[in-house]
Design a binder for these strands. Structure first.
Length: 625
DNA sequence: ACGATAATGATGTTAGAC
DNA sequence: GTCTAACATCATTATCGT
């Protein structure tokens, strides 16, 4: 059967029922793609985010507090929760309306003129007027402007309620054939293909507004893309039906196509990251710092375990990526954490998990958090004008010998205190490549065992056994920071006093396993999936050296891990307590010059396999329970 | 053939000046 | 607000040497 068709149909039906029918739950076109759900979904309660205060609205984001934490808490059903303010039902104000349309690329003068003509109540008519102006001027809003401004506009507050407040969709009579033509042209001007435009008009009828038509096209894209993605993976319809998985169909796909799609503040990655938490990248808290304002959370009902799961990837991914990941992973907001609060090197990562977040504890001993503490010897050679106290992100490549020589020569040609320009050059390169001072005018890249230590691995964890130096750097650069992950996983210790059964995807050199082991959590069974034989050998070697008494099963390819195999594993080991993994970041990382293709990149698309496998595990375990 | 080496920007955020 | 500059970033590719 044709998934995409069904999805679009359901989407359109629900959307228009909600929009035109009762009109109560319409949340604006920004959330259009959220309507692919069959069941009512949990919605975070956002307080004050529509306030007119000068404060950044994101600062005001708060979850409804909860008496208890963790997966055991049942979130209230939508009907139980507080009234209409729950969703984006804010009233509109004129500045918001103006900025909304300015955010779409219209000039302020034009917007004010259009509002004057139509009144501020009727945002749909205002838009129509604006589009007419543009058509008359033969100068459609610039695409780039739309792209550039949408994110900032969404930070201003919400441009979406302004659309949402329009209860007058039926008022207008747009059956005129000319109006239809105008809409067609407008859609094309907005960047849609003629094919898409005409299809959308025939789908939605001549009375549909521009926004509805645009949403419809997006919905079709979304459904199609999601279906394509699932077909590409081994997550077949058969499997979904066999295990009664509903979420696969319900989930929506939405790549960060910001030039066409509007984003609400809650959807904006920037709101996820630093500004959402007020303080930078400490998630729901790190050891040694006071708890952030958002030190509690309420999980969506559908996100609860078993099993617990823990997903990791780079925090600074291209726009929309975390948005998409979060939506696939049961609408859990990522926890953005920088490992610089755990060790002497920065590592900005986001973690999506359904673990409790209270009563965490750190691994002991607490690792050194400054370069001098970690490498006391370097202090002797550290010039006063190099202000670094911590390393930047440890990557897979190291600085070249040529570079360190260039630095040495540049410094040798100067006095004791080099001129500012030389200082700047040296510091920039040192920051970029994480160089340390190992002698007079002499810098060097970190050694592999030093990186092991910084990342929380035992010394020589990746050493020997046939792995080359370059491969060591690569494997380490792709790994977890153990202390950070252990802090998050520490809540499992009391919950599983007799040990846990782990499904570890994209295991790498076993950061999660090392973390659990160092926490003193017994590993009853670890099913590890890792494509690199070198990395599998490293894990196996570690497993033996640490005298593990549990069972280690090593598989190679996540894409080969289908429902049959999972069912067998689950029946053999009695289900998984934890599904942990971080999918490849190659196509997300900023340092990738060539193929930073986002979540659809060759490697990073394996995220969908993480989701597929996790969803299958949840379904199989759910069925067995 | 394989590992080591060196050269190769782009995307996005943030801070600060205006 | 708007602009600019500074800054950070789990990397890929071609080439060289063995």
């Amino acid at each position: 059967m044709e998934m995409s068709g069904l999805c679009v149909l359901r989407f359109l039906t629900e959307k228009f029922e909600e929009r035109i029918g009762d009109g109560e739950h319409f949340v604006g076109s920004c959330l259009a793609v959220s309507f692919l759900f069959e069941e009512p979904r949990e919605v975070f309660v956002l307080q004050d985010w529509t306030s007119d205060s000068d404060n950044d609205p994101k600062e005001e984001l708060e979850w409804e507090s909860d008496e208890e934490q963790g997966a055991a808490v049942r979130p209230p059903l939508p009907c139980e929760s507080a009234g209409p303010s729950e969703v984006c039902e804010a009233g509109s104000s004129r500045p918001q309306l103006v900025s909304h349309f300015m955010g779409m690329g219209f000039s302020e003068d034009l917007v004010l003129k259009a509002i004057k003509e139509n009144g501020e109540e009727d945002s749909e008519a205002v838009l129509e007027t604006l589009l007419t102006y543009m058509a008359l001027e033969k100068s459609p809003p610039k695409q780039s402007q739309i792209q550039d401004n949408w994110s900032s506009a969404s930070e201003d507050g919400n441009l979406d309620e302004d659309v949402a407040d329009g209860s007058d969709f039926e008022d207008e009579d747009f059956t005129d054939i000319l109006a239809e033509d105008k809409k067609f042209l407008t859609l094309v001007e907005m960047g849609f293909s003629t094919n898409e435009a005409s299809k959308a008009i025939s789908r939605c009828g001549p009375e549909a507004s521009i926004l509805e038509l645009a949403d419809s096209i997006h919905a079709a894209e979304v459904a199609q893309e999601f279906d394509r993605r699932l077909r590409q993976s081994t997550y077949t319809n058969n499997e979904r039906e066999r295990y009664g998985c509903s979420s696969g169909k319900k989930r929506k796909f939405a790549e960060g196509n910001t030039n066409k799609r509007k984003r609400s503040p809650t959807e904006n990655d920037s709101s996820f990251s630093s500004s959402m938490f007020g303080t930078p990248m400490i998630g729901y808290g790190v050891p040694g710092l006071p708890l952030p304002r958002l030190s509690t959370r309420k999980l969506p009902e559908s996100a609860a375990g078993p099993p617990f799961f823990y997903y990791e990837n780079v925090a600074l991914a291209p726009k929309g990526v975390w948005d998409t990941i979060s939506r696939f992973l049961y609408d859990i907001d990522p926890e953005f954490v920088d490992s610089k609060f755990f060790c002497a090197a920065a590592r900005k990562r986001a973690y999506v998990h359904n673990l409790p977040i209270n009563d965490r504890f750190p691994l002991l001993p607490i690792p050194p958090k400054t370069i001098f503490e970690a490498f006391p010897i370097s202090r002797k050679w550290w010039p006063s004008w190099d202000p670094r106290t911590q390393f930047n992100c440890l990557q897979t490549c190291i600085g070249s010998a040529k570079l360190t020589e260039r630095i040495r020569r540049a410094l040798e040609n100067c006095d004791d205190i080099p001129p500012k320009s030389v200082q700047q050059f040296v510091i920039n390169e040192c920051r970029k490549w994480n160089l340390v001072w190992v002698g007079h005018n002499k810098v060097a890249p970190l050694e592999p065992d030093e990186i092991e230590m910084l990342l929380g691995f035992p010394k020589d964890h990746t050493r020997g056994g046939g792995i080359s130096r370059t491969e060591r750097y690569r494997s380490l650069g792709n790994s977890f920071q153990v202390d950070t992950v252990a802090y998050h996983l520490s809540v499992l210790k009391d919950m599983f006093p007799h040990g846990i059964t782990v499904l570890s995807l994209f295991t790498g050199i076993g950061g999660a396993e090392v973390a659990l082991h160092r926490l003193g959590i017994h590993l009853k069974t670890v099913v590890s999936v890792e494509i690199s034989e070198l990395n599998r050998n490293i894990l196996k070697s570690w497993w033996e050296q640490t005298n593990q008494t549990g069972t280690l099963i090593e598989l190679a390819d996540v894409q080969q891990l289908n429902g049959d195999k999972l069912e067998h594993l689950i029946s053999t080991f009695g289900g998984f307590d934890l599904v942990v993994g971080g999918s490849p970041c190659n196509n997300l990382a900023g340092s990738n010059r060539h193929h930073r293709d986002g979540l659809e990149g060759t490697h990073s698309a394996l995220f969908y396999d993480y989701f597929r496998i996790l969803d299958l595990v949840r379904c199989i375990m759910g069925k067995n329970v």
